[in-house]
Design a protein around this nucleic acid. Structure first.
Length: 141
RNA sequence: CGAGUCGGCCGGGCGGCCGCGUCAGGAUCUUCGGAUCCUGCCGAGGAAGGUCCGGGCUCCACAGGGCAGGGUGGUCGGUAACGCCGACCCGGGGCGACCCGCGGGAAAGUGCCACAGAAAGCAGACCGCCCCCUGUUCGCAGGGGGUAAGGGUGAAAGGGUGGUGUAAGAGACCACCAGCGCCCACGGUGACGUGGGCGGCUCGGUAAACCCCACCCGGAGCAAGGUCAAGAAGGGGUGUUCUCCGGAACACCCCGCGCGCGACGUUCGAGGGCGGCCCGCCCGAGCCGCGCGGGUAGACCGCUUGAGGCCGUCGGCAACGACGGUCCUAGAUGGAUGGCCGCCGGUCAGCGACAGCUGAUCACAGAACCCGGCCUACAGGCCGACUCGUCCG
RNA sequence: UCCCGUGUAGCUCAACCGGCAGAGCAGCCGGCUGUUAACCGGCAGGUUAUAGGUUCGAGUCCUAUCGCGGGAG
């Protein structure tokens, strides 16, 4: 019901897109984005982006593993990332799948630091998209 | 004022902007399933945690008997129940308020008690002590017997002290004490306590070793389970009966993944069910076993009103119960309960003129079916009762 | 949600029925060699995960806690 993103409602991306509409929910979408999407990383987080040629709102998902910390810390990191992503949602192209994975240093990072690293990562992914889909082995392994 | 014991409670507050989830109302769109937007209410904890116990709830099972298995362990109460809680008893600790205790049985049986020691569970006798006999170089040696007071070992050596007694000794005998068993009286619901009498003189420890006794215990778990969709692990049709009209029971019929291997069987029974095993009972003709391949895992209900919270009165030492009033207070599902900022409040550091200023920081920790407990983590703070010591009145 | 296993020297593991905690590798010292490796001799290294308890005595038995690993749906 809520995942009825059949493109039936033509989405007019003018104002804020609610996170509920662009929330990634299915396991295959996560697997698709992580396995087949492009990747860019920083010490605190890693992002995977997979673009699709469908006219639906972009889907964003977060992965915070148990190595980051306890339940309280993981919730805090995920909520911060979600709020940060909300402001940057307009930059994501239609139909793409984005997964943001948090690394253990994200537990002790401040929000500004997380925001800066998220900007770097998104900028790297989106700029590369404009160019050529050549084999991309991003700098660090 | 100082030191301490016990119990209860809180665990940041206020405001602004922007968001998220459930529900309610409204608007727009709609392929009538729903989607989007606006407004409003509510939106993590004392431990939500560990998963150590006990229940509710759901499904499966339940003629009965026996044997295994697990748990609990002073008594009496409380409770839906408990391994929890309360009061009391016994033992131990503290000057005291108080605290701690897996606290049944070792004369039902079996096992074990290393090293040391003569001997570790039958009582016995290494060094000793004493008596008798023989020999004697008169120091003693050998043999037979009596002892357990003394020495030494050990965690533990078969009551302790004193006396009588004796060849030396010994509960052999006596007094007191400790301990055991039995009986009686009184108090107590009871564990038990107090007092008296009798007995033999004394009986090791270990049951968190096997075990015995008493009492208790079906299995799984909300990913339970149900409805719909889908589906090749089951589904459909017809008839009869019942019906709360949702459906249910019974009988009959039809269809029921592919390939390979194997076993048994069709009134002499394969196979299955009854928590495990046995007896026993029941169902019973292909719903058997193994391997490889193939298929599926979506939505909704369950889902939050409950052994519920608060206040008062009464009963009870208390745990708790009865009655009356009042309140409704999270329901997510890649998982909402948040992000940023201002003021105040703690804590720490620095400067200080002891008003204050500046900076840093905010304990443990996040519901997932729901309750009652236990245990564990926790910055800081508040309240009450009581004990001991000092000083003053 | 439910259920198992495990924790011993720096590492990998032993230790019977409760009775003095041990082996291999690694480490250090010495020897051998022109030097290193190998080899030979020796040495040190432990709160038996933590805290209580039972016992004369606990790595072992009991209870609780903590950590790690694994399994089922």
């Amino acid at each position: 019901m809520r995942s009825g993103s059949d493109g039936r409602q033509p989405y007019l991306g003018e104002v804020l897109v609610l996170p509920s509409a662009s929330r990634m929910r299915r396991g295959d979408e996560f697997a698709d984005a992580i396995r087949r999407g492009r990747r860019a990383g920083r010490p605190t987080l890693v992002a995977h982006l997979k673009t699709r040629e469908i006219d639906v709102p972009p889907l964003v998902g977060f992965v915070v593993s148990k190595a980051v910390g306890g339940a309280v810390v993981r919730n805090q990191v995920r909520r911060r990332l979600r709020h940060l992503m909300r402001a940057r949602l307009e930059a994501i192209p239609q139909g793409s799948l984005l997964v943001v994975r948090a690394n253990p240093p994200a537990a002790s990072a401040r929000s500004e630091h997380l925001a800066a690293e998220l900007d770097v990562v998104l900028d790297r992914l989106l700029r590369r998209r404009g160019s050529e889909p050549r084999t991309l082995t991003d700098g660090r392994s």
